[in-house]
């Protein structure tokens, strides 16, 4: 019996979320005395695959096939199920992101394996298998019992942390899957990748603005601070609905759920829908001129004042601290 981790690469490189997933898996593997097998789909160099070993994978299945480039959920699921069976894996862990959400449910139904989405901790018990996840968009947690033999988990990002890498390398096995007989309904027409911009889901720091920013022209103040901090920029739903900022920056209940180390909220009142998307951030700083704004109820630190004065001052003060 082993523990299988689905590792996702972007243009051949693994991201932080993958190493977090493996760090998390190490903890589980230790507790149930088993080994971690990683599954990588796509074109990834041996050097990059070795990194999976640094974070605890004993074995890596590297699956390559042109047909997989289409990201057809149905074909992916068939490939993953095959390997799962071959390895007799009883626990499989996905990231709780777009791909985890696309694949884990299909696999769950295919294998009749209980799925717990958005887990935030290691299991509190292995037999019976009980684990905690986020529900009601971070407004509460549930302890979930999984009754099936195989268990599927998706791990909330930034909920566990990354262990220090070792110098261990994994055994790498290349696999050419037998998927010639599965037809795809999908035809890829074009791809539009965001380039040169730090993605919200990768960012350790985020600077975000709400309707209190008054107009899109004022976002240069946010961008300046974000650049200084190496942070991504985000916004609230009204801001993206107004078209002031792109939809992919919308953070909140119906947008992206994030959990960075530092979240700076400027001109955000703190509607419950927004707070649901950021409440797991480690440190929240709120800038608002209204002392009664609900954002101060979830923030760790607050600056009472108008963003027009506060943001330039804050940027200046951080520059000085960094320079010293």
């Amino acid at each position: 019996m082993t523990l299988l981790v689905y590792t996702e690469n972007r243009e051949g490189k693994f991201k932080k979320a993958t190493f977090e997933l493996l760090s998390y898996a190490q903890e589980l593997a230790k507790n149930i005395n088993t080994e971690i097998v990683a599954l990588s789909i796509g074109d990834v160099s041996p050097d990059e695959l070795n990194k999976l070993g640094n974070y605890g994978a004993k074995k890596v299945f590297s699956v390559k096939d042109e047909k997989l480039d289409l990201l057809d959920n149905k074909i992916y699921t068939a490939v993953i199920a095959d390997i799962l069976e071959k390895e007799n894996a009883k626990i499989i862990i996905f990231p709780d992101n777009l791909s985890g959400r696309a694949l884990a449910p299909r696999l769950s139904a295919k294998l009749k394996a209980g799925l717990v989405s958005g887990v935030v901790d290691i299991p509190s018990s292995y037999d019976p298998f009980i684990i905690k996840n986020k529900v009601f968009t971070g407004k509460a947690y549930a302890s979930v019992k999984v009754t099936s033999d195989i268990k599927i988990l998706t791990l909330s990002q930034n909920s566990f942390g990354i262990k220090d890498p070792s110098s261990d390398t994994p055994q790498i096995e290349d696999i050419k899957p037998d998927i010639s007989c599965i037809d795809s309904n999908l035809k890829l027409l074009s791809v539009d990748m965001v380039t040169g911009k730090l993605l919200l889901t990768d960012a350790e720091r985020v600077v975000s603005g709400g309707r209190g920013m008054r107009s899109p022209e004022n976002w240069n103040l946010i961008e300046e601070l974000a650049e200084l901090l190496g942070a991504a920029t985000a916004c609230t739903r009204p801001v993206s609905d107004e078209g002031w900022r792109p939809h992919d920056e919308h953070v909140g209940q119906t947008g992206k759920i994030i959990a960075p180390e530092l979240y700076i909220a400027c001109g955000i009142s703190g509607a419950i829908q927004h707070v649901g998307g950021i409440s797991s951030s480690k440190v929240i700083v709120a800038i608002n001129k209204d002392p009664d704004a609900p954002i101060f109820e979830v923030a760790d630190y607050g600056i009472l004042g108008d963003f027009k004065n506060v943001l330039p001052e804050l940027t200046k003060a951080i520059k000085e601290t960094k320079g010293s």
């Binding site: 549930a142 302890s143 099936s148 709120a286 760790d300 009472l304």
Partner: peptide, 22 residues
């Protein structure tokens, strides 16, 4: 059913927000 929610909990309340003036 493959899973069962046994019990729920609310997040720990945050400590008071430290407010700074401009």
């Amino acid at each position: 059913c493959l899973t069962e929610n046994l019990v729920y909990e609310l997040p720990q309340p945050k400590g008071a927000c430290r407010i700074f003036k401009e």
